[in-house]
Nucleic acid binder design. Structure first.
Lengths: 192, 192
DNA sequence: AAACAAATGTTGATTAACAAACATTTGTTT
DNA sequence: AAACAAATGTTTGTTAATCAACATTTGTTT
């Protein structure tokens, strides 16, 4: 009668429980030290439920990353909705939304930032950020002698730098403050 | 294979979701204004699941109250475990644990304290508190001319007074501070 | 009072999650 | 190297939770 697993509440809830459990465990130890048994215990879910959806714990982590990246994309694109005029300014407006996104997933970002084993995920985030910025930049007319792809990459990694520092300081600043910092920095290094 | 509903994770989780949803809704409107539909929506649970366990929303609320009262009893009895010497001092040690309990269920207590329709539940809490104190008092030898049942009731309602004020001030004090307040008050009105 | 929408309660088919038992693998201790 | 515990996958029967459709009741608007 209903064969669409992803919209089944039970599936959704089980997966969320497993992901929350993994996040929580990753705050204490690294992935190899974590067992499937520990995950299902923390998630309060039967072992069989885990193996119904995933083969290894790595697969769970991967889906977790996918989720966050999808939310990153959502957060970034949200201010660009409804065919508004796209410009370099939009690029900055969107960048600001990213701080909200990072704060929302603070636990996740802290884990991947502070883990040596998970550096691969950092670069994946960076690449995604760059891609998003390039997307905006493609729809913009040239500005005096700047290679826009370079600009996109430049700014993506710059923002990642802000985020890294934010994380390393244990989120002691608010997302709004971080946005203001970005705007202030942009004001100094103006390219228009 | 397993026929014990109460230890089934699915049951436990569904009920918790429904209770949390009800608490959350009661913060906005009173019970009559809340529909079963709203509850199951907020709980992210199918309507059928609700009707599997409860007939009306009132039944859900009742079970919620039962849960809290059971936890109140647990909290109170915990320091009295393992046949420790029971005395009037224990009565105070236990009273302190109650503040932790109330803080843990802050949302619940706020709702029943601030609702006119739910005054019946307040007196139920008070009675339970009195019963618990009487229980301790029964195992204690007399102290100079004090009717111990009166003492139990006196103190139970006194503590409820503290809790009421605590709630009315939106929990602006910590549980520890409340404990200290209680101890200080007891120090002034010493009966030994 | 008729039409309407919203909430209620019920039903049936489907399946994800469950407990519990199992054999297997891994890794440590004796 | 044998004994041991712990973690890993797998399996089976059972059922709570799910979706979706339905008839009914309630309450509001026209």
């Amino acid at each position: 009668m209903f064969m669409d697993n992803y919209h089944d509440r039970r599936v959704r809830k089980s997966k969320i429980a497993l992901k929350n459990a993994l996040i929580s465990l990753l705050q204490q130890k690294n992935l190899q030290q974590i067992t499937v048994t520990k995950i299902v215990q923390a998630a309060d879910v039967n072992r069989g439920t885990f193996y119904k959806h995933y083969q290894y714990k790595e697969e769970l982590l991967e889906e977790m990353v996918d989720d966050v990246i999808l939310d990153l994309i959502d957060s970034y694109r949200e201010p660009l909705k409804e065919g508004e005029k796209i410009s370099i300014d939009n690029l900055n407006v969107s960048a600001i939304k990213i701080f909200d996104h990072v704060e929302k997933h603070a636990d996740f970002y802290t884990i991947i930032a502070k883990s040596n084993a998970l550096v691969g995920l950092q670069s994946r985030i960076c690449m995604q950020l760059t891609d998003l910025m390039k997307e905006v930049v493609e729809q913009t007319r040239e500005i005096k002698g700047i290679e826009l792809n370079l600009l996109a990459s430049y700014q993506a990694y710059a923002i990642w730098g802000l985020i890294r520092e934010w994380i390393d300081q244990d989120f002691k600043y608010s997302a709004t403050y971080m946005s203001n910092q970005l705007l202030t920095i942009l004001h100094f290094t103006r390219y228009s």
